[in-house]
């Protein structure tokens, strides 16, 4: 045994060194990540009044269901006062909708959501806070909000070029936005492959998002829960382009 250890010392030392290095990075990352969660929890609990946490009857499923529906309708009425298009995300109905003045203009069925039980058992105060009307504070997308094409006006008839409509389709959309209630949402459009079958790659997408998030946030200072939603690409693009910058979003669960 000793002979083997001596014979392959260089290799074993390398493996041990790499292991210890990765382990320490992971431990530091874990501690920082947990501290970030703790800070986020404390911050959240500060905005939820103590008396709101224990609401009468909230632990009775029928009452809770009705209170959630009432909450959703009250938010709809508030949003209807605005002249802007806004986004409604009903997680228990698996629906994302665009509404204006109380009229639902488009309703898209989610292909998948992750986590599957995103905030579905919050206490009353936390639920109230989660479903408060939130505003988009930051967003990025793989396609432009407005597909503007700049064209120089011809100086005379000879300069007029025949109008050519751009027929190259946009790539499937990935729309990420952060809300002022510190929730991140990632909406991914699922397009059709060459056989006209939905090209849904849930695991690949998840690894890509988490990897890109890790790159920017290896040792996180803040924690924002992220909701991932997959929609039909056509619906996802329509919804993205309908919602104005800094648009309003409301959740139901």
């Amino acid at each position: 045994m000793k002979e083997i250890l001596l014979k392959y010392k260089a290799g074993l030392v390398t493996i041990t060194a790499v292991f210890l290095l990765l382990l320490s990075i992971t431990v530091i990352r874990y501690v920082r990540a947990m501290n970030a969660v703790q800070a986020a929890i404390e911050e959240k609990l500060m905005v939820i009044p103590n008396e709101e946490i224990h609401d009468a009857g909230w632990n009775i499923p029928e009452i809770q269901e009705k209170k959630k529906e009432i909450n959703w309708l009250e938010r709809q009425l508030l949003l209807a006062k605005s002249d802007s298009l806004n986004l409604g995300i009903s997680l228990n109905d698996s629906i994302v909708q665009v509404q204006l003045k109380g009229t639902v203009l488009v309703q898209a069925k989610m292909i998948k959501q992750h986590p599957e039980h995103f905030f579905d058992s919050l206490n009353y105060g936390a639920y109230h806070d989660f479903t408060r009307i939130a505003s988009i504070v930051e967003e990025k997308s793989t396609i432009p909000k407005k597909p503007i094409r700049k064209v120089q006006a011809p100086k005379n008839e000879n300069e007029v070029q025949e109008f050519k409509h751009d027929t190259i389709p946009d790539p499937p959309i990935v729309w990420q936005f952060s809300l002022n209630n510190r929730i991140n949402v990632v909406i991914t459009g699922v397009g059709l492959d060459k056989d006209s079958v939905l090209n849904f790659q849930y695991r690949k997408n998840m690894v890509e998002y988490k990897l890109s998030n890790l790159k920017n946030n290896m040792f996180p200072k803040n924690y924002n829960p992220t909701l991932y939603i997959w929609l039909n690409d056509r619906d996802a693009k329509s919804i993205y382009r309908a919602i104005p910058e800094k648009g309003k979003v409301v959740f139901k669960n």
Partner: peptide, 11 residues
């Protein structure tokens, strides 16, 4: 952890 803390059941 985040969800669990905010999910304390009502009395």
């Amino acid at each position: 952890k985040y969800q669990k803390v905010l999910s304390i059941k009502a009395i």
